[in-house]
Simulated assay, not measured.
Amino acid sequence: MSFTLISPFCILLLLTSWLLSSQGVIAAPVDQGTHTPTAREAVTLKYSISGSGTFYPYFTNNPQHPGILPDLVARILTQSAIEGENIVLPAKRTNRYLESGKIDFDLISPAWLKASQLTDPRFVFSDAMLPIREYVVTRAPAPSLNNLSGRMVGTVRGYYYHDDDEFVRVDFESERALIQALNKGRIDIAILGDLPAQYWSAQDNVALHFNQLHSHGTLHIRLRAEHAHLLPVLNQAIQTLRDSGQITQIETDYLQHVSTAQAPGNE
């Protein structure tokens, strides 16, 4: 008869293994390939929605009441459980940053865009959020200006206009600067959003004539295509906010500060 001697080290190792196993300390092997991050994990969407900086009431430059768009985007991101970072940029730089991927989305009306911009494969669009209109504006009543071909037209630097290949752009830094230029006779025609035009004309005491509707559309999130997988959750958030009345409430809170004395149709 023969015996196999077990070393004290082996006995200690076996005893330790048995003790740990009996206390449930030894865990089952982890399959590293079974965890797939959700669409919202580890992503912070950078965006810019400041427009010209005087895009009132959509953007106000007031940290306590930043405007319709900052409030709306904050609600959408919170509802979506997506982190966001608002980077305040001039409109022209916003477009450049979005195209280069330095920011991930902006807000835009497809009615502002040319056909080639609407079908740009670099971007996808969310569901609609808010109606938005812009007008051809003059200082005094004038014949209908539904044809701007060849005319010099005041515009905001960096803004999109679906037909700006037909007229001569005269760019100014903001909506307010456009109204001041109209008042001083530096330009005779401008294209302005109805709400910013109403607000700044009231602030600066400049009478305006809303001559002709230039575009009537809705605001959407324009998102870089690499984040297209986030669209379903963003659209669901938009739907939830719409159904609960929160989008209407945000808009109403700011519209009460916009004068309606010169609203289109009330001139």
Rank of each mutant, 00 (worst) to 15 (best):
I26S: 07
I26R: 08
I250E: 04
A181I: 12
D104F: 06
V30S: 08
L118N: 12
H227R: 06
T38V: 04
L195V: 05
A261N: 06
L77H: 03
D171N: 15
L208G: 01
S174C: 12
A177Q: 14
H209E: 00
V206N: 08
G158S: 12
Y97S: 14
D163H: 11
Q256P: 00
G158L: 10
N61G: 10
G51L: 09
H220Y: 06
T252I: 00
F55V: 02
T16R: 09
P143R: 10
A42G: 04
S201Q: 12
V73K: 02
L255K: 13
I11T: 09
Y47V: 05
E41S: 14
F167E: 10
P90K: 08
R93W: 03
P37H: 07
Y199H: 14
V258T: 04
L118D: 07
V136W: 07
Q180W: 01
L107I: 15
W112P: 00
I82T: 05
L255V: 01
R242A: 02
Q64N: 13
Y199A: 02
Q117R: 13
I76W: 01
R169N: 15
I82A: 03
I49A: 06
L77V: 00
T36K: 14
R151I: 08
I103F: 03
F125D: 04
W200E: 05
L72G: 04
P196H: 08
Y47G: 04
T138K: 09
Q203E: 15
D194C: 06
F167L: 13
N205W: 00
C10S: 12
G245K: 07
A140V: 12
H227I: 01
V206W: 05
A115L: 11
D194L: 03
P232T: 11
A81Y: 01
L231M: 12
I76S: 01
S244L: 06
S52V: 08
P66G: 09
R122V: 07
L14F: 13
S109L: 05
I189M: 02
I132V: 15
L182I: 13
